[in-house]
Design a protein around this nucleic acid. Structure first.
Lengths: 240, 240
DNA sequence: CGGTCATGTGACATAATAGTCATATAGTGA
DNA sequence: TCACTATATGACTATTATGTCACATGACCG
């Protein structure tokens, strides 16, 4: 935690420091992020900084914690559209909110991202502020999904959690890439408007098609039944 | 590319340098990897190093390239068990070979990993030596899978590639975590024997169950048919 | 032996950073 | 106005890294 002096600061000054610190740690990994640069940008003396924070590490952990709290608040403030939702619609909504956070808070999103993948000597302390909650939440969700009959009961719930988390995390890179957005640029400029929601929804459609029904051809299953409703049978379609 | 002087070196000396360089860049990210440490360990003079390599970056790119070539060679040398394999068995075999590489070449695996996620100013150059091939290969595989009827034709192939790549990449972390292996330790010690292949196979079973058939309950589809073969119907099983 | 070229060497130059500290300033209350 | 406390300051220290260079060493050849 920062020293009390930091919280005693006038709001504007504290926010200025925080703003530049966030930008610096979003654009550079821990090692490359420069305290010298931050104090120059925020127009405070080096010595002042060290009255607010014990050291670079304390600032960093503070920012990671801040980013996570912001994201959590963002997720919690977003109310689901319906009260009773099936597993997949709810999961999709969760992904959607996560993506919205990433797009509207690119710098904070980057900090969380670096915290997860980054390489620092005090990694444990960093991770302590991150994960945990998300994993547990998804696990509970899967359990409920199975009990409600939305999720197959012959899957390994832990593997389901892994699949969901991994793909959700992957979306963080995939979506900006598909939309032609540069994460670096996003963090600097921001994109309040001008996001192609149709493209994003299409990505979700495609992903959930696979997540819910798998990659495998469903025709084979249908074959074993007498009546085949609404399923196209495709054999050797345009084989090379 | 390293200077010619590097390749003129006696094999043993060149290998010693390479060995310590690999270890250093496997255990530290680019910024933290120390040339000074490498030359000390390899017992060569600083000046000698700079006769072999233009700078730190050249060494790093050389190592990333080396790691990728080694992995590619490993993948190509591993012959598939059967000539004609379905999409899923083949994909599973691919994952398996990849995992074997990671476990038997943990340091090189780490270097590739850092190359993908790491943060350097010349990122483009790093990525140029990595990806590309893998993505194209999987894409072709999916196309074939669709044409052969193994893969559903109503999925987005690009999304399938994303899903496969992302989960495959995720396994790299998931498997060691599940087996209680520390990636850092692995890179140093290595684990020639003593790998629980049963546990790994179980992970593959679980993953491919989801990858092929999805998370969704298949009962609903079966319901619409007259005869229901071998599918358990589960409703409200132990609802809280 | 002597000359030439390739290679080895480590002290040194250079640059950048995190963190310190003596001192200055400002605010507060009597 | 004075005393006292909290805060601001930036030159400075200490450290650590990459990369250089003048010189040493050795190998090969006539």
């Amino acid at each position: 935690m920062p020293h009390q002096t930091f919280f005693n600061l006038p709001d504007k000054k504290r926010q200025t420091i925080t703003k530049f610190a966030i930008a610096e740690f979003a654009n550079n990994d821990y090692q490359n992020a420069s305290i010298t640069k931050i104090v120059k940008q925020a127009k405070i003396a080096k010595g002042s900084f060290y009255q607010y924070f014990e050291d670079k590490k304390e600032l960093y952990l503070y920012l990671v914690d801040l980013a996570n709290k912001e994201k959590l608040a963002f997720m919690q403030q977003a109310k689901p559209p319906k009260n009773k939702m099936g597993f997949f619609p709810y999961l999709r909504w969760l992904f959607d909110v996560g993506t919205k956070f990433d797009l509207t808070h690119p710098a904070l999103s980057q900090i969380i991202n670096r915290a997860v993948y980054g390489d620092v000597s005090f990694r444990e302390e960093v991770l302590a502020m991150t994960q945990a909650s998300s994993n547990e939440y998804i696990k509970q969700l899967v359990q409920n999904g199975i009990e409600q009959g939305d999720v197959a009961d012959d899957i390994n719930p832990d593997m389901a959690v892994f699949t969901i988390n991994t793909l959700g995390e992957g979306l963080r890179h995939y979506i900006p890439a598909q939309l032609g957005l540069d994460t670096e640029q996003l963090a600097e400029k921001g994109v309040d408007a001008g996001i192609d929601m149709n493209a994003i929804n299409q990505i979700y459609d495609d992903l959930f098609q696979i997540l819910e029904h798998g990659l495998g051809d469903r025709v084979i299953e249908a074959k074993s039944n007498v009546s085949n409703t609404s399923k196209k049978i495709i054999y050797d379609q345009s084989v090379i």
